[in-house]
């Protein structure tokens, strides 16, 4: 059995998106319940959330944006940059704790206290751009973690895999010129789904050309298509790139019961993806894998999906 860390903090629930928003605190409650009911909690190493040092956030986000976010949130404004991004005065604190918790999980992986981790955080991060909140995201947790691993722990090559049903525009843009971070995303085709980026021909720019890879999936497709594309586009790319740590943007919204998009992944389909990522982590990264929650909105399916996810991480 693996030593798997689990990050969760009740303060993540305080990020209040209003009455009708799908990115709501019940998501995390469902995830915790699923893992608890499956009897997995005792096997997990609890990770304590703490506020991130702002210098790490500044590796990805513009200081003026961080400042604006703080001002808007604390002064009680209800949105940041777009109507999708509903927030409350506690959003600022939750977002800081999300980043800080993910960095703590990364630290514990690097000091070999744990092998891997699942970070059940809110708000999510992969749409957040350098200077703009987008798609329910404020701070790009995953991108900041990659920078932290490189700068604090001298990790030379970080591989990011994003299987949220939406393309992680913020993460891609952070690293598109960077050959030391490989960003791979599989998502619903951008002609049909938010945010409209992540097309096959987006392959990185300048020195980073060839270190971004996108597998857009047409609506209605499921397990088979995902497996075929991951085998074809991701596995060989990481074989060559040899990431030393794998960070996963984990979104459960490609599930067939998730109303946010039109994909048809089954529970087993998600487990297959995770087992494949675990194998790659074993092969290239000494098992070091950091999974960070992005989307996933079907409250009925989230408990099972989270429990299955953790089972694969535990290798139980």
């Amino acid at each position: 059995m693996k030593r798997t860390g689990f990050l969760y903090d009740p303060r993540y629930l305080l990020h209040d998106t209003g009455p009708y928003h799908p990115e709501r605190s019940e998501r995390l409650e469902a995830i915790v319940k699923g893992i608890t009911d499956a009897g997995l909690m005792p096997h997990l190493t609890k990770i304590k959330a703490r506020r991130a040092d702002q210098r790490w956030i500044e590796t990805v986000h513009a200081p003026e944006y961080i400042h604006r976010f703080e001002e808007f949130s604390l002064s009680g404004r209800r949105t940041l940059d777009c109507d999708d991004n509903q927030m409350s005065p506690d959003t600022w604190e939750a977002a800081n704790l999300a980043v800080g918790g993910v960095l703590e999980a990364a630290r514990m992986i690097m000091t070999d206290e744990i092998d891997n981790a699942f970070c059940a955080v809110r708000p999510p991060g992969h749409h957040a751009e350098r200077g703009e909140a987008m798609g329910f995201c404020y701070f790009n947790n995953v991108a900041i973690a990659a920078k932290y691993l490189q700068m604090e722990w001298k990790v030379e090559r970080v591989g990011i895999v994003d299987f949220d049903v939406h393309h992680g525009n913020g993460t891609q843009h952070t690293f598109e010129k960077d050959a030391s971070v490989f960003y791979y995303s599989i998502h619903q085709h951008p002609s049909f789904a938010y945010p409209g980026t992540g097309r096959e021909f987006e392959l990185g720019t300048e020195a980073g050309y060839g270190y971004t890879k996108n597998s857009p999936v047409l609506p209605g497709q499921g397990d088979e298509t995902y497996q075929r594309l991951i085998q074809k586009d991701l596995v060989p790319a990481f074989q060559t790139f040899e990431p030393q740590v794998i960070i996963v943007s984990t979104g459960f919204d490609a599930h067939k019961d998730d109303e946010m998009a039109d994909m048809s992944l089954s529970n087993d389909g998600f487990s297959w993806i995770m087992r494949t990522l675990m194998k790659m982590a074993e092969q290239h990264a000494k098992g070091r894998l950091l999974s960070v929650l992005e989307g996933g909105y079907c409250l009925e399916r989230l408990p099972e999906l989270a429990a299955d996810h953790v089972k694969v991480l535990l290798d139980a």
């Binding site: 009708y20 799908p22 109507d83 999708d84 987008m134 209605g220």
Partner: peptide, 24 residues
């Protein structure tokens, strides 16, 4: 121009419209 389409999808279905999978 939004990521948040769950509610509007449900509303349109409740109004009797058929939402189609564009691939179909």
């Amino acid at each position: 121009l939004t990521n948040n389409v769950i509610r509007i999808k449900k509303k349109l279905k409740d109004m009797g419209y058929t939402l189609l999978d564009p691939m179909k």
